[in-house]
Design a protein around this nucleic acid. Structure first.
Length: 461
DNA sequence: GCATGATCATGC
DNA sequence: GCATGATCATGC
């Protein structure tokens, strides 16, 4: 096929690529596209490469437009109710070769050589629609900014070091900030050998986290970042310290102060009853305007949890997550479950201790769940799924009070399942009617992190 | 004092 | 109306 652009000239490639905006593949591609069956996930990119740019899809170590070092990536968008675009997924860069990466330097690594300059084609995903009819919405190039590159370099080294240590099977996206090691394969059980351990590991790929892709989208669609407040203002800052160190150094001056005194020192007056009081206090300490999101936290999808400790260092309450839907959990597998997804995020814990009705800031800690504990949480999830699938929720009813078979906190060191609802009538439908009571819907429940676990494995460690 | 079930308050 | 973070009530 004759090329309608010059593959050795970046301006030409970009100009040609941008013609894709607001049209579908059916409108953009050569007619031969109709003779091929490229339906299904993951084929959008292949169709564009073959029937628009006119080269055969490859998985070479070098960039797709090798002469100009430009790599083509296509990725789905979703549209929010406020008409803003967000990434539907993380952006997969390239498969991690466990045996090769252990001998690489970041600067010369395959993933960086191939992906430092990317041509991004974002299309709007719609469920059930033929990929040929999905409309392309954003097309632009992306160069990793220098400040991000420093973070990504540390991320890459964290991943590499874990593989060097023979712990490829323990990799988690929560280990890192912007660059994640996501599972990648025909299914989650695609496994590979690793160099320094006999244990097999899931196949994984380097990827930009969904939050990082959202930032790319905001940048190329608006050309500015007005919704973000930054922690990292210069390349110097990020060269000298990690995100953890920067955040902790901003909190440390306030350790052992009450929330009242922190507000005084910061010269602010926050609404203590507001639901986002602690989020606002965190922003104020970090020097971020209250109406803006913390850029680095959004990009890294950091989950901030505020914890109030009793005098014995045990959190006053367990930590809740989103409710799960009974009908959904019975259809899910652990590897694709919402609970596993959230546990593979990075968390920032802000610990206060209750003393004489006042809250004293004790410390902040970045944390992500260790592999072994994720396996413990998986047990709770699997058991919960089984109980719901069996219609076996209610164990007994005594004096009109129901007791359930869901795992309680005495049975697992990490997590338990408890109600999380407005009241007992705030329910989700059950996929299988409850055997003992005949109920067809049940009070909303969620997974909780045990307060004792938070104390022993996060606060005291 | 804690485990478990239940509920409240705020904001979008 | 619901999600989310926070808190309460009861019984052992």
């Amino acid at each position: 096929m004759e090329l309608l652009y010059n593959p050795n000239n970046k301006e030409s490639v970009l100009e040609y690529a941008k013609r894709l905006k607001n049209i579908s593949l059916r409108q953009a591609c050569t007619p031969e596209v109709l003779e091929h069956s490229y339906l299904g996930k993951g084929n959008f990119g292949q169709v564009i490469e073959k029937f628009y740019f006119g080269y055969d899809p490859n998985s070479k170590a070098e960039a797709d437009f090798s002469q100009i070092g430009l790599e083509l990536k296509t990725s789905p968008l979703k549209l929010l109710k406020n008409n803003e675009y967000r990434s539907k997924e993380r952006l997969v860069l390239s498969i991690i070769n466990y045996f090769k990466v252990v001998d690489e330097n970041f600067e010369d690594s395959d993933v960086i050589k191939k992906n430092s300059n990317i041509l991004l084609v974002f299309y709007l995903y719609e469920k059930g629609v033929d990929i040929l009819d999905l409309v392309i919405k954003l097309v632009d190039e992306w160069n990793i900014p220098q400040t991000d590159l420093e973070i990504i370099k540390r991320d890459w080294e964290i991943i590499k070091n874990k593989i060097v240590a023979g712990r490829a099977h323990e990799l988690s996206e929560g280990d890192t900030f912007y660059l994640g090691a996501c599972t990648k394969g025909a299914n989650a059980s695609t496994i590979k050998m690793q160099p320094n351990s006999t244990l097999p590991a899931k196949q994984r790929a380097f990827s930009f986290k969904q939050g990082y892709v959202n930032h790319i989208i905001a940048t190329i669609s608006k050309g500015s970042n007005e919704v973000y407040g930054k922690l990292i203002d210069s390349i110097d800052t990020v060269k000298k310290a990690t995100i953890e160190e920067i955040v902790i150094s901003k909190f440390e001056p306030y350790y052992e102060l009450t929330t009242i005194d922190i507000e005084k020192v910061l010269n602010i007056n926050l609404n203590k009853k507001a639901k986002n009081y602690y989020a606002n206090l965190t922003k104020a300490i970090l020097g971020v305007e209250l109406d803006k999101e913390i850029e680095e936290f959004e990009k890294a999808e950091i989950n901030v949890k505020t914890v109030r400790l009793k005098s014995n260092n045990t959190p006053k309450e367990d930590i809740s997550f989103s409710n799960f839907k009974f009908e959904q959990i019975v259809l899910e597998e652990w590897d694709e479950s919402n609970f596993k997804d959230i546990l593979e995020h990075k968390f920032l814990f802000v610990f206060f201790q209750i003393e004489n009705d006042k809250l004293i800031l004790k410390k902040v800690k970045f944390w992500n769940m260790p592999y072994g504990d994720i396996l413990e949480a998986q047990k709770v999830w699997e058991k919960t799924k089984q109980i719901v699938a069996d219609g076996n929720i209610v164990k007994e009813v005594i004096n009109g009070k129901r007791r359930t078979n869901f795992l309680s906190k005495t049975l697992n060191k990490v997590s338990h399942v408890r109600p999380h609802a407005i009241n007992a009538n705030d329910t989700y439908p059950l996929p299988v009617e409850d055997k003992l009571t005949g109920l067809k819907k049940y009070t909303k429940h969620c997974f909780w992190l045990n307060s004792s676990y938070v104390r022993d494995e996060i606060y005291l460690k």
